[in-house]
Simulated scan of single mutants.
Amino acid sequence: MKLVFSIDVEEEGLFTGEYSREPPGVENIRGLDRLEFVSKEFGFPLTLLVSYRVARDACARKVLLDWKDLRGAEIGAHLHHWSTPPFDKLPYPEPVPADLLPPALLRAKLENLLDALKTNLGVTARSFRMGRFDIGTQVPKLLPELGLLTDSSIVPLRRTAGGPDHFMAPCEPYRLEGSDGRTPSVLEVPLTMIPLFPRTRNAVYRQSSFLPPRVRDFLLTAYRHAAVVGVHPAWFSLSAMKLAANLHRARGGCVLCMFLHSSEVHPGATPKFRTESDVRRLVDKIRAFLAWLVRTGPVRGMTLEDLRAFF
Rank of each mutant, 00 (worst) to 15 (best):
F44N: 05
S20E: 13
L282A: 10
W235F: 14
P195D: 04
L149H: 03
T47A: 00
L191E: 03
D284W: 15
L35F: 15
Y223M: 05
F236K: 00
R281T: 15
R159E: 08
G252E: 06
E10I: 03
R30S: 04
V54R: 01
P86D: 12
N28T: 01
T119H: 04
D33E: 13
V26Y: 02
E41Y: 12
H78C: 04
V186L: 06
H80I: 02
V228L: 01
V294L: 09
L64G: 02
K109I: 05
V9Q: 03
S6C: 02
P271H: 01
G131K: 02
V215R: 10
K272S: 11
L90I: 09
V299N: 06
T137F: 03
K89S: 14
A291Q: 14
G122H: 02
V38A: 09
V139G: 04
F44R: 01
P144M: 08
R216Y: 01
G230H: 12
A288K: 03
T84G: 02
R281P: 10
V283H: 08
P45G: 09
K242W: 06
R280G: 02
M1V: 10
G72M: 11
L64V: 08
R182W: 14
A169K: 07
T124Q: 15
W292R: 09
H225S: 12
F128V: 08
R71I: 02
R56L: 07
P170K: 03
P173Y: 00
R249N: 11
R274I: 07
A55V: 09
S209D: 14
R107E: 12
L220G: 00
A244D: 06
D8N: 12
R61Q: 15
K62V: 14
L256Y: 08
L260A: 04
R61N: 10
F310A: 12
L65D: 05
K118R: 15
V279M: 11
G72Q: 11
K118V: 01
G297M: 07
T296K: 14
R30G: 10
K68L: 11
H266Y: 15
R159I: 07
R251Y: 04
A288C: 06
R280T: 12
G301P: 05
G230S: 15
Y174G: 04
F210L: 13
A58R: 12
Q138G: 04
S209R: 15
L238H: 05
V283A: 13
E41H: 13
L256D: 00
L149D: 01
M302L: 15
T84C: 02
P195A: 02
E172Q: 13
L101Q: 07
D66N: 14
H266Q: 13
L187Y: 00
R107Q: 06
V96N: 08
C59Y: 11
C171D: 09
L90W: 08
P164N: 00
G72Y: 09
V4P: 01
V299D: 05
A108G: 05
D151G: 07
G17I: 11
D57N: 14
E10P: 06
L238R: 10
T150L: 14
Q138C: 05
R251Q: 09
L110E: 00
P298T: 01
N28V: 01
D33G: 09
C254Y: 13
K109Q: 07
R129V: 07
